[in-house]
C-alpha cells in the first residue's frame, strides 16, 4: 500500500492502491477468501461490540465515559428515527442502528493509516444502499398496498402536470439507491485519494512541509466527513423509511 514512496525518479502518485483488495494468506481472491476486507469488516464488528456492549457491561445508573458514549449514540439514532419516521418507525430502529454503527465504525477505522476503508468500495455501499432501497420498497407495498404508488402521483399539483411529475418522481425514486451508495463510497474514496495525493507531494523536499500540513488539514476534514456521511446515510434511510410508512403526507 505504501510502497510508492520511492519508485525511481519523479513524482509517483498511486492514490488508488490503498483500495486494493488482497488475500491475507495468499492465493486468488474468491468469494470466501479471507481478505483485508474481511479483516477490516471484522474489526468494525469488534469496534461496535467494544463501543456498545463492553462499555455497558456494568450497567451503571450513573454512567462512566464509555457508557455515556454508548448511551449518546443510542439516544442520537433513536431520536433521529423518532423525529423523522414518527412513532411507528421505532420498530425499525435496530436495523437503522446497525447501519449507523457499521458505517461509523468502518469510516473511522478507514482513517487509521495503512488501513483499508471498506466503505470506500462501491460493492459494499451498493449492498447497503440497495438493501435499504429494496427493504423500503417491499415494506411500502406490504404496508400500503397499491396506495404506495401515490408517492409518485402528487395530488397537490395541477392535473396536466401530474404525469410529468410522476415520471420525475419515478426517476428520482430509482436514482435514490445509486446516489445513496455512491455518495458514501465517493466521499470516502475521494477523501482518501486526496490524502494520498498530498502524501505524494511530500516526495519533493521543497514542498514537503506544505504537503504534510495539507495532509493534516485534509485528515481533519476526513474525520468530519466520516461522521457526517454516517449521519447522512442514516438520516436518508430514515427519510426513505418515512416515505414507505406514510406515502401521503
Amino acid at each position: 500500500m505504501a510502497d510508492e514512496a520511492k519508485s525511481g525518479g519523479g513524482l509517483s502518485f498511486k492514490p488508488m492502491d490503498q483500495f486494493e483488495v488482497k488475500s491475507l494468506f495468499g492465493g486468488e481472491v474468491g468469494m470466501f477468501t479471507i481478505t483485508n476486507v474481511t479483516l477490516w469488516l471484522a474489526l468494525a464488528v469488534l469496534a461496535v461490540i467494544g463501543l456498545l456492549v463492553l462499555t455497558t457491561s456494568k450497567r451503571e445508573t450513573v454512567p462512566g465515559r464509555g457508557q455515556s458514549i454508548a448511551e449518546l449514540m443510542y439516544g442520537f439514532v433513536y431520536k433521529m428515527v423518532e423525529d423523522v419516521t414518527g412513532k411507528d418507525g421505532i420498530k425499525y430502529f435496530p436495523y437503522i442502528m446497525t447501519l449507523f454503527m457499521f458505517i461509523l465504525c468502518a469510516n473511522f477505522l478507514g482513517l487509521i493509516p495503512m488501513s483499508f476503508t471498506t466503505t470506500s468500495h462501491i460493492a459494499v455501499t451498493a449492498v447497503l444502499g440497495f438493501g435499504v432501497f429494496i427493504a423500503v420498497t417491499v415494506l411500502g407495498f406490504a404496508l400500503n398496498g397499491a396506495a404506495f404508488l401515490g408517492l409518485f402521483w402528487p395530488t397537490s399539483a395541477p392535473l396536466p402536470l401530474r404525469p410529468v411529475l410522476a415520471v420525475i418522481e419515478l426517476i428520482s425514486y430509482f436514482v435514490r439507491p445509486v446516489s445513496h451508495s455512491i455518495r458514501l463510497a465517493g466521499n470516502m474514496m475521494a477523501g482518501h485519494a486526496v490524502l494520498k495525493v498530498f502524501a505524494g507531494f511530500a516526495q519533493v523536499a521543497a514542498i514537503a512541509p506544505v504537503a504534510i500540513v495539507g495532509v493534516m488539514a485534509i485528515y481533519g476534514l476526513e474525520v468530519l466527513v466520516s461522521a457526517i456521511q454516517a449521519y447522512v446515510f442514516t438520516i436518508l434511510t430514515c427519510v426513505y423509511l418515512k416515505d414507505a410508512l406514510h406515502p401521503h403526507h
Binding site: 433521529m80 446516489s179 455512491i182 455518495r183 465517493g186 466521499n187 474514496m189 427519510v239
Partner: peptide
C-alpha cells in the same frame, strides 16, 4: 439541522458524481 444535512448531502452527492467521473476517466 437534519434538513440542512440532507440538503448538503444532496448538493454534495452531485459533486461526488463528477469526481467519480473524473476518477473513471483517469483510471
Amino acid at each position: 439541522t437534519a434538513t440542512l444535512f440532507i440538503g448538503i448531502a444532496f448538493a454534495e452527492a452531485l459533486g461526488i458524481f463528477s469526481f467519480l467521473v473524473a476518477l473513471l476517466l483517469m483510471f
